[in-house]
Simulated scan of single mutants.
Amino acid sequence: MCVSVYDIRSIEGGSIHPGEGSSTYTVSFRLLMFKPFVGEVLVGRISGYDDKGLHVSLDFFSDICIPGHLMQYDTIRVPDGRWMLKTEDGDELYLDLDDEIRFLVSSIKYPSVPVEQKEDDPPFAPMQIVGSIKGDGLGLLAWWAADEEEAEADEEEAEADEEEVGEQ
């Protein structure tokens, strides 16, 4: 998917072909493209949710969904419409709007352009990404931030203990 024209390197030509009323140019340019691959890990923001799962946005691209069956094992839909993960400790971790989420690209779809589209249909999405948050390190960034801080504190404590032993 083309995100932006990076630059235009050259424009040549300007010829008019017989029988045509428009001029033709040869243009050399570079594009900024977005083409994730299956298995890539991306970070986005939760932009919505429904019965099927979460909707995620990368600011410049928002046709990403994480279906309920590709979330952590104990993730359920609660009556207020949000999704919640119940941990082994009994904690309830909610997936709220605008939370940053790390997900794995499970599949990429390029649907065919519809011949006709009803007025109330959502805009056509030329590329759709299906994501997954099953696995270590995936899910809300806030879930893993506490674990990373604990790991860093444990490492610092171990280094301090080694220095004390070395001094003795």
Rank of each mutant, 00 (worst) to 15 (best):
S62A: 10
M71T: 00
V78D: 04
T87G: 07
G21T: 03
S62M: 01
S132H: 09
E156Y: 11
C65N: 03
S23M: 08
V56P: 07
P114I: 04
A125R: 00
D50V: 02
C65V: 06
K86N: 11
P122T: 07
V5Q: 11
E159S: 08
D96I: 01
L138E: 06
P79N: 07
L31I: 09
I133F: 09
G19A: 09
L85S: 02
D98T: 01
I64C: 07
L141N: 05
A145T: 10
D59P: 03
T24L: 14
L97P: 11
G44N: 04
D161E: 15
V78K: 12
S62L: 10
E116S: 06
G53T: 02
V5T: 07
E116N: 12
S10D: 14
E157F: 13
M33E: 02
E164K: 15
E88C: 05
Y73I: 09
A146G: 03
E159L: 14
F61D: 11
G53M: 10
L31V: 12
E159R: 15
E167M: 07
E163F: 12
D89C: 08
K52H: 10
A158E: 11
V78H: 03
S4T: 00
I46K: 03
H55Q: 09
K134G: 00
K35C: 08
G131Y: 04
M1E: 04
W143G: 00
Y6M: 12
P67T: 06
D74R: 15
G13K: 05
G137D: 00
D147L: 13
L42I: 04
D50M: 04
F60K: 05
E88K: 15
G19C: 11
H69L: 06
D154W: 15
A145M: 13
A146N: 10
G131D: 07
Q117G: 01
P123C: 00
F29T: 03
E148F: 15
G21P: 04
V130N: 06
D80Y: 09
H17T: 04
G48A: 06
E88T: 11
T75E: 07
S106G: 05
V130K: 05
G14F: 08
L104E: 05
G21C: 11
L140G: 05
L138K: 01
H17C: 10
E149M: 13
S15W: 09
